[in-house]
Structures are given as structure tokens and as C-alpha cells.
Nucleic acid binder design. Structure first.
Lengths: 191, 191
DNA sequence: TGATTTTCTTGCCTTTTGTCAAGTGAATTC
DNA sequence: GAATTCACTTGACAAAAGGCAAGAAAATCA
């Protein structure tokens, strides 16, 4: 049994399965590290990483029509990281996934994930629970972005994921919140 | 074999399984109709409907802090309709789902869905494909809403789901786009 | 250490969107 | 069919956010 305690704990928090099932699932994952600014996924590649992020901060981003980077989402410690479209549909990714800080965690490939999905009923429940959890998070984000001013969105981010404001540069946060750098800088000043 | 041709076609478009598997899955669904303005789900209930919408237009909405209705999402023909948090986590819903026009389709309950999930491998693939599909749609919506002006968001909706603009009242669309009724009315005028 | 680049802040002005309130017209009701 | 309600529009003004450019501060590099 390798040292995947945090992953086992994460699995047990996501779905009601036995500890030994959780440990067997965790066993299938492989340790990975990423340096600051290293990419987990480059656009136009087919993603093959389903990652549990144990330490660090990552982001996913793409380029808008003017060629500007738009940060779509941040990933914090103790969450899964994957580009769902590319990973599950086996198509080239439109987005990039990049480590903001040094990161470490455990990954499995698409092939490994499917083998588990077919062989281990407990993993099916885990897989579904993760999809449901991430889907809900995406919907919540939708709701939190619309019908709110930039200031409220910023305050919400401050309250829910302060590590992002600590570790990510202003321009990543600005594009994530849908405002310009200038506007975010001014918002900050008034708080 | 009842008349569920559109559902079978829908299933076959979502996941690569055999026609007979798709027909067996469709068999488990039950026909339902909803009158205009009728609710599929009221807030504070636990959702028990996983619905394939064959005809009509629906929306999901909740109330903001000022007690105003906020339309979160629209559901169009030939899509699935469910409140993921309440349905999968068996918790009371914070959202309402309501028919805008007269609607018809086919539903299954949580219990029925899980029985299929455990007994029919083809349904597992279907279930996962639906979650992936809806998750991607949610992410796309996120991306389409941020970093765009209200006018661009409106034009995008016009291009992608014109039936919404045809059948939903202005106030539903305005809150969905995150603007006031007045602003949407003015946007329309300039087009 | 000093030079260079990158990140962030700020001022000035414009555009977008919101607020509030009044008004029109259509649909519904009694 | 008059009254009421509902959906939408419009005007006048206010607030929020953006565009652009200059400059300060911080990080990186040589």
C-alpha cells in the first residue's frame, strides 16, 4: 500500500463504499508531479489524464477571438482535474490545463479508468459521483456568475477559494471573473 | 414495443450501443404530459424524474435574495431534463422545473434508473454519456456567458436556440441572460 | 547590482447596463 | 365590454465596467 491516504479519504468522502474498495481504486492511480507553469494538457492534444490533485493550484484556459488567454476554471487541492470533453470523447482539446504553482497528485489514463469502470462496481459508483459532483459545481458557478456584479463575484471567490487569490496572478482571476485587469484592480482597492 | 421512436433515436445518438439495447432502455421509460405552466418539480421536493423531453419547452428557475425569479436554464425538445443535485443526491431541490409550453416525453424514477444502471451495461454507458454531455453543455454555457456583452449573449442564444426566443416570455430570457427586462427590450430593438 | 520584463495600479473619458417610473397594448376576467 | 392584470417598451438619469495610456512596483535575468 503506497502513501495515497489523501486519495483514499477523498474517495470515501465522495461515495459510500468500503475502505478496502477505496484502497483498491486508489492503487490504480500513479503519482505525478508538475513544476510551476508546466502543462498537464496542451490544446489540440487528446487528454489522457484523470488527475486527483493532492497539492497545488492549477487552471484551465483557452484563447478568445483576439488571442487573449481566458482562464475558464481553477482547480484547488483535494479535487479532481480533467478536461471532460477531450478525455471522455477522445477528441482534441480546445483548452489547456496548466499548473500555477508546483503540483502533485495521482492520475489514471482513459484506458485504466475504463478497465476499472467495467471491472469494479465500486468504481462505477465513484465515477458517477465525481461526474455528478463536478457537474453540480459547474452549475453553481453558472449561477454565481450571472445576475451578480463583478464586485459580488470577487467577494464570493474570496470567501470560497481564498487560495486562488493568494496564488494566482491578477490577470488570471480577472479573465475568470469576466472583467478587465483594470476593473479587478479597482475592485480590490475598495475592499 | 410502444411508440418511443424518438427516444430510441436519441439514445443511439448519444452512445454507441445496439438498437436492441436502446429499445430495451426506452422500454423502461413511461410516457408523461405536462400542461403549459405545470411543474415537473417544485422546490423543497426531492426530484424523482429523469425525463426525456420529446416535445415542448421547459425551464428551471429559483428565487434570488430579493424574491425575484431567476431562470437558470431552458430545456428544449430532444434533450433530457433533470435536477441533478436533487435527483442524484436525494436532497430537497432548491430549484423549480416548469413547462413553458405544453410538453410531452418519457420519464423514469431514481429507483428505476438505478436498477437499469446495475443490470444493464449498455445503460451504464448511456448514463455516463448523458452526464458527460450535460456537463459539457454546462461548461459551454459558462464560457458563453462570461467575457461577453449582453448583446453578444443574446445573439448567441438567437443563433443556437431560436425556439426559446419564440416561446419564452422576455422576462425569463432576461434573467437567464443576466440582464434586466429593460435592457433586453432595448437590445432587441437594435436588431 | 543594475537592467529588463512583467504585473499591477491609476486617471481620464466612453460605453454598457441598471433603476425607476410612466405609458402602451394585449390578454384575461368577471 | 369595461376593468384588471400582465408583458413589454421607452425616457431620463445613475452606476458599473471598459479602453487606453502612463506610471509604479515587483519579479526575473544577466
Amino acid at each position: 500500500m503506497s502513501n495515497k491516504k489523501s486519495l483514499v479519504t477523498f474517495i470515501l468522502n465522495v461515495v459510500k463504499i468500503s475502505k478496502s474498495d477505496a484502497e483498491q481504486i486508489a492503487e490504480a492511480f500513479h503519482f505525478v508531479e508538475l513544476k510551476e507553469k508546466e502543462f498537464l494538457l496542451h490544446e489540440k492534444q487528446v487528454s489522457d489524464d484523470y488527475l486527483y490533485l493532492e497539492n497545488g493550484l492549477m487552471r484551465t484556459f483557452l484563447y478568445d477571438l483576439e488571442g487573449e488567454e481566458i482562464t475558464i476554471d481553477f482547480f484547488t487541492e483535494n479535487n479532481v482535474v480533467f478536461e471532460i470533453t477531450s478525455f471522455f470523447n477522445r477528441v482534441r482539446s480546445e483548452a489547456n490545463i496548466q499548473a500555477i504553482t508546483k503540483c502533485s497528485g495521482y492520475r489514471i489514463s482513459y484506458k485504466e479508468l475504463n478497465a476499472l469502470f467495467h471491472d469494479k462496481p465500486a468504481f462505477r459508483d465513484f465515477g458517477r459521483a465525481i461526474l455528478v459532483k463536478e457537474f453540480i459545481a459547474s452549475q453553481k458557478r453558472n449561477y454565481g456568475m450571472i445576475n451578480r456584479t463583478a464586485k459580488e463575484r470577487y467577494q464570493n471567490l474570496l470567501a470560497t477559494k481564498p487560495q486562488i487569490l493568494r496564488d494566482a496572478p491578477l490577470k488570471f482571476i480577472a479573465s475568470y471573473l469576466g472583467v478587465t485587469d483594470s476593473t479587478l484592480s479597482r475592485l480590490r482597492k475598495n475592499l
